[in-house]
Computed example of a mutant assay.
Amino acid sequence: MTTAVPDTAHRTAHRTTAGLLIGAAVLLDVAFAGLGAVFDYPQVLQHPPAEVLAAFLDSQTAVVAWFTALVVGAALLAPVAVGVGRLSGRRAMRWAVPVGILAAVVQVTGLLRWPLLVPGWAASGDVESFRTANLVLGTLVGETGGYLLTALWTALVLVALGTAFAGRWFTVLGGVSAGLVVLGVLVPLGVPLAGLANFAGYVLWSCWLVAFGVVLLVRRGTR
């Protein structure tokens, strides 16, 4: 009886973290697919700013809704980092928690321009403000910062948990996805295939998040 409460608490915490991992991955993927369908995102960002604003106006309600969903999915990475942080007491995991929270913050900051600021710029035709925000909030903060911090969080978690947590496949999947995600920082430099590698990285990373959640659901107790 003396261990029932701690064991129950561990199982509840694992299930909560698992739900956040799977929920974040699914929401991010669905929102990204929705934006691709109604807004041709992210390819649309390669067009002149005036054309992007016009495309935004054409499907504003749907685009804002999907970007809001993307914001929520990115925000879930903060409680994910906190929940995952309880799985290990190693130094790498202590670093991983603030890094994961910061990864969520920079991505939310970059994405919020779409539902909060872009509608006004699109209505007024303020191309210059839109261009500046895409550079600062988009490329520098949300994307570059997001790529680096997401990859770093993943690497720190893998170091902290090791192969004993779920096996070598878990470490390899997470490591490969993180390596491909971080290549996104080369996209603004025009490096060939960097965008494709980054996209593939996020697909694999979302699979890793789901696998992470499933492992937690089937595990008993804690390391």
Rank of each mutant, 00 (worst) to 15 (best):
M1T: 00
A4S: 05
A4K: 00
V5S: 05
V5H: 02
P6M: 04
T8Y: 10
H14Y: 10
H14L: 15
R15F: 15
T16A: 15
T17E: 14
G19R: 05
L21G: 10
A24Q: 11
V26M: 06
L27E: 03
D29T: 14
V30L: 12
V30P: 08
V38L: 10
F39L: 07
D40P: 08
Y41A: 06
Q43C: 02
V44A: 12
P49K: 01
L53G: 08
L53S: 02
A54T: 07
A54Q: 06
A54S: 11
A54N: 05
F56S: 01
D58N: 07
D58C: 05
T61G: 12
V63D: 02
V63K: 01
V64K: 00
A65N: 02
A65T: 04
T68A: 11
A69T: 06
L70Y: 14
L70G: 13
V72S: 04
G73N: 03
L76A: 13
L76W: 06
L77K: 09
A78Y: 04
A78F: 09
A81G: 11
R86I: 11
R86L: 15
R86Y: 11
R91I: 15
M93S: 07
A96K: 00
V97G: 13
G100D: 09
G100I: 12
A103I: 03
A103Q: 02
T109Q: 07
T109L: 15
R113H: 08
R113Y: 03
P115Q: 01
G120K: 02
G120Q: 05
W121M: 11
S124E: 12
D126I: 05
E128A: 12
E128Q: 05
F130E: 00
R131T: 12
T132Y: 12
L135G: 09
V136Y: 11
L137K: 01
G138S: 05
T139N: 01
T139C: 00
L140V: 12
E143D: 14
E143Y: 09
G145C: 07
G145M: 02
L148K: 00
L149V: 06
L149D: 04
A151V: 08
T154C: 15
A155W: 07
L156W: 03
L158V: 07
V159A: 13
L161Y: 08
L161W: 05
T163N: 09
F165Y: 15
F165K: 04
A166I: 07
F170P: 09
T171P: 08
L173R: 02
V176L: 13
V176M: 10
S177P: 12
A178L: 06
V181T: 07
V182Y: 08
G184P: 06
V187M: 09
P188D: 00
G190V: 07
P192M: 09
P192Q: 03
G195P: 08
G195Q: 02
A197Q: 00
N198H: 12
F199L: 13
A200E: 00
G201V: 05
L204Y: 06
L204Q: 03
W205Y: 14
S206G: 13
S206A: 14
C207E: 06
L209C: 13
V210K: 03
A211D: 02
G213V: 11
V215G: 11
L216E: 01
V218K: 08
R220Y: 09
G221E: 03
T222A: 15
T222I: 15
